[in-house]
């Protein structure tokens, strides 16, 4: 049975998430089911190619967004803004995923390792955390003069957690590259851009140590970071061939 309808279904569900939280939950559950069934059928985590990875990113973004209690203390406007931003991003990623053909083939032997799954899975988890950080940054910046400091702090927490996951993902990639190609570092555009993302978020964390840079500056940096992440993920992959092209 072709499962693609399950992936398609997540798009309108996420769009419904713009209005109701339950649709966001339903979209996330639908995509998780789609990924789990694909995992079972393929006998591996579906993380190869833009179709799988965009869906994985959308589901992670929606799933991890539930960690943020946006509506706590009766903050309905905050809950609505946060949900709408997350739902919009998840819907967009899911929509673009549908234009890429799902990779059903047998993986090259070099990809059949837990290190690969750890590397890619954690990378996309970290992208989701950075995406949530960007959404919180947008909310903070759109508040005008009466900005909530708690939003900026939440952005920092999500970015810090994303930074940890991203660092583990990079290290897992290094271990895998060492076992597969005899070196933990390859000079390719993708690796360089990955280092740029890592350095950028290191810079963000240092920026935040200075009280003078707290607030607007760090929020803008958190939003720009996600733009950099998306370029590294999609732009570099499309424009520059590397060891990450299979």
């Amino acid at each position: 049975m072709n499962l693609i309808w399950l992936a398609w279904a997540s798009v309108p569900l996420y769009m419904g998430g713009l209005f109701k939280r339950r649709f966001l939950v339903a979209g996330c559950l639908t995509q998780t089911a789609y990924l789990l069934i694909r995992d079972h059928r393929l006998g591996r985590v579906p993380l190869v190619g833009p179709h799988d990875t965009l869906i994985f990113l959308a589901a992670s973004l929606a799933g991890f967004s539930f960690l943020y209690p946006a509506g706590a203390g009766g903050q309905k406007n905050r809950e609505r803004s946060f949900r709408m931003l997350i739902a919009a991003m998840a819907a967009l990623f899911s929509f673009f995923a549908m234009f890429a053909r799902p990779f059903e083939g047998v993986l090259p032997p070099v990809l059949s390792t837990y290190w690969f799954e750890l590397h890619v899975g954690l990378s996309f988890f970290s992208y989701a955390f950075f995406g949530i950080g960007a959404a919180l940054g947008v909310m903070y910046l759109s508040q005008g003069q009466q900005r909530e400091a708690a939003l900026e702090k939440s952005q920092y927490r999500f970015i810090l957690a994303g930074y940890l996951l991203f660092s583990v993902a990079m290290i897992a990639g290094g271990v895998w590259a060492y076992l597969a190609w005899g070196t933990y570092w390859l000079w390719t555009a993708k690796e360089l851009w990955t280092s740029i993302v890592w350095l950028y978020y290191s810079l963000y964390l240092h920026l935040r140590l200075r009280p003078a840079w707290h607030g607007k500056n760090t929020s803008v940096a958190g939003v720009l970071g996600f733009v950099l992440v998306l370029f590294t993920y999609l732009g570099v992959g499309l424009l520059m061939k590397s060891s990450h092209t299979f």
């Binding site: 390719t188 555009a189 360089l192 280092s195 740029i196 350095l199 810079l203």
Partner: peptide
């Protein structure tokens, strides 16, 4: 450092 690595990535390609 980021600026130089960005330049490097374009030179590499």
């Amino acid at each position: 450092e980021i600026a130089f690595l960005l330049a490097g990535s374009f030179f590499m390609v």
